[in-house]
Nucleic acid binder design. Structure first.
Lengths: 206, 206
DNA sequence: AACGGGCTACCTACTGGTAGGTAGGGCAGA
DNA sequence: TCTGCCCTACCTACCAGTAGGTAGCCCGTT
């Protein structure tokens, strides 16, 4: 309703604030970001920003909920696929890469949240992700029982995969310097995705 | 000399400050930690802390240099081993786990530094780690050429391993909640280490 | 043995600056 | 005229860092 006029000229101020906040929080963390930084990025003053969000914490929570809904949707779609065996695992890995490559700022916020044990966000993070984690565990375990995958501990396996995939995006600036190249070019992301897929396939499929 | 009397009663104030700073920076990050927090943890006032270190940044740099010297020493020793083939890879992985399990606070500081692209530390981080990275790459490549390891891209392989191992420690509080268990008990660390070793072995050794 | 300078380690009290948040006014569009 | 958006001006709380002073120890001199 009120957005109609603003959507004609691209995005509403509220959306611009959310976008800028996402980028700042990912870049410098919660404490490292000031509301002045965000407001300046949008081109307004801090009190004007606080007209749209009641507090810094509320703004952060809204950003984090965008992240969660995007991720949960993306991963649930991939995990609901009717594929089976290795095909399904590969599908989920590639879906994860697509998701993270599309929104690398989300990955860095999630990493910061994991480091800070979720003190900034009023959401039960692990409570939301546990169902996904548990169903992924059940999938791998059943495929191992059926002899389709080499036997590993499913929980540790998923944690290993989580770390291997997320790190490439969260630590991209650091990896840039190790590789002497931009880690997040489309080509390099595709290469690393192919590598992870081949590596996990080699480890899992006898 | 002047320390003699203090060393009788355990550690010098300077060391107590470094220990507390390490813990605070790991727990809440550079911006999230105030000098008051650290001083209070030691049981002195902020100006007294600043008697031992000229600034917050200098204190952080000292903490980070403790980290670097510990890691570089530990990893160089493992990588200089005369073992070869899979034995050497396993040895380095287990050395990494030992190192990180002994100093989980270091892992979290390193992760934060990777996320912030090293803005807090006046050290050329990647310049120091590049030689280790390159020599690890060269090792894997030569072993693949010799047919001892399945063929993978060595650079991507090491980044995958780095992510898989580090994440278990840096995201421990988050993993606690996924597993409904303490990730960093000696037994769980050993289990995860065994898993990673077995997983990489399955992927690499034909 | 007694004195006194100089040192370390710590304190309280303060500075300039910046953080998040609020109050209230101007003003354009419905 | 009313509502929504943005502004300036202000608040309190906290930050890193400084100024200045005190207690106690070491050590050379007398």
């Amino acid at each position: 309703m009120s957005d109609v006029t603003e959507e004609i000229s691209s995005k509403s101020t509220r959306e611009l604030i959310l976008d800028e906040a996402l980028h700042c929080f990912a870049d410098r963390g919660y404490e490292g970001t000031s509301l002045n930084d965000i407001a300046a990025g949008v081109g307004i003053r801090r009190p004007s920003l606080l007209h749209h969000f009641p507090s810094k914490e509320a703004l952060y929570t809204d950003v984090f909920e965008m992240l969660l809904s995007e991720w949960l949707e993306g991963l649930e779609v991939a995990m609901a696929s009717p594929a089976s065996g290795w095909d399904k695992a590969e599908l989920v890995i590639r879906a994860g890469f697509d998701l993270f490559a599309r929104t690398p700022d989300y990955v860095r916020i999630m990493r910061r949240e994991a480091l800070d044990s979720g003190v900034h966000v009023g959401v039960d993070l692990s409570g939301l992700l546990r169902p996904l984690f548990d169903s992924a565990c059940a999938y791998f375990t059943s495929e191992m029982d059926a002899g389709h995958f080499r036997r590993h501990n499913s929980q540790h396996l998923i944690i290993t995969g989580y770390g291997a995939i997320l790190t490439y995006f969260s630590d991209a600036p650091f990896i840039d310097e190790l590789l002497n190249d931009q880690a997040l070019t489309p080509q390099n992301v595709r290469d690393h995705c192919d590598h992870v897929v081949a590596f996990f396939r080699a480890a899992l499929v006898a």
